[in-house]
Nucleic acid binder design. Sequence first.
DNA 1: TCATACATGTAAGTTGTTACATGATTGC
DNA 2: GCAATCATGTAACAACTTACATGTATGA
Lengths: 183, 183
Amino acid sequence: MSLRHALLGFIEMLQPVSGYDLKKWFESSIRFYWPATHTQVYRTLAELADRKLVTTKKIEQTIRPDKKLYSLTDRGKQELVSWLREPLDLPATRHGLMVQLSFADLLDIGDILSLLSNYASKVSAHLLFLKKDQQKFSQYGRTTRERLLWELILESGLEYYRGELRWTEKAIRRLKAHAGKGL
Amino acid sequence: MSLRHALLGFIEMLQPVSGYDLKKWFESSIRFYWPATHTQVYRTLAELADRKLVTTKKIEQTIRPDKKLYSLTDRGKQELVSWLREPLDLPATRHGLMVQLSFADLLDIGDILSLLSNYASKVSAHLLFLKKDQQKFSQYGRTTRERLLWELILESGLEYYRGELRWTEKAIRRLKAHAGKGL
DNA sequence: TCATACATGTAAGTTGTTACATGATTGC
DNA sequence: GCAATCATGTAACAACTTACATGTATGA
């Protein structure tokens, strides 16, 4: 599971850091590649502490709720770096729209086109969102190489969604052309 | 969950059909968009039968193990068609390589390039595999519109992986250039 | 003789989602 | 006055994975 290692990675970058802040970092960056809810984050942090990959320190606060700060242990860093080197399998994608289209011959053309245009508009909205994020994000890198890596990751997302848009538009054209032939 | 509806869709196409055959159809087609193990298939079929969306018929066999054949009920077909019309959220992708690259500044350049070239070779292998599948697959469509849909689905996969390859090659070039500057 | 196809399942574990729970402070 | 931020968690459920289990027939 990459969630564990994503957390180790962020802790390495930000230590000492609270679960709450880790969750916020997830939200604003890696979530496009590995989404996680706060429930999962806290559960996984507890497990990492159990396995002595991180240490915790309780901070008592008066006007805010108490919090715990996490830091990496040597074993945690070892675990992180050795995972970073591991070649992974191709990700298993689950793309509900494609499942729908597989059986969409049961629908009439209007319904099929709605599915596609709904997808297109969600993809466009997401693209806009990613572009806004773009500037904000690439500033944080601590080395030029880290900034380059983050830029590449963001471009991968942009290109993926641009590709989805192109494909959706093509699919709409082809389906309309096909429907037209029937007249 | 799309698995339930993917099964309903295949049952609609192939009924009466055994769980074993449904699994094989998954393997050879939809698995790229919605992978499922045989455990999941059998469990979900039992649930669909429980909910009266499908009916089963036991076939006793001597030289082969007995089997169950599944067919759609009217309620099953209704459920399928109404799901097919539902606009879905954007799929949540989990892309481990991107998680690794997010923290890859902890690695040396050789390790980073290995991650990328390993990914590239897996993507290429998968592309070859998809292209082989291409002819075999598009023959099955029962209407011209169904064939068009399946063609579009397959193209979406091809374009995705071609995009991944292009991105990976660009990433390798940029990282090599960056490493070169340091000399 | 060894792997593969046929055909179905159970059990146990891991991961991921949703709802519930608390309670002060700050900004609109 | 109401929503959002801060900060952490539990409980219950849903989905997915891996290992275990059985037993015949066919082809390389």
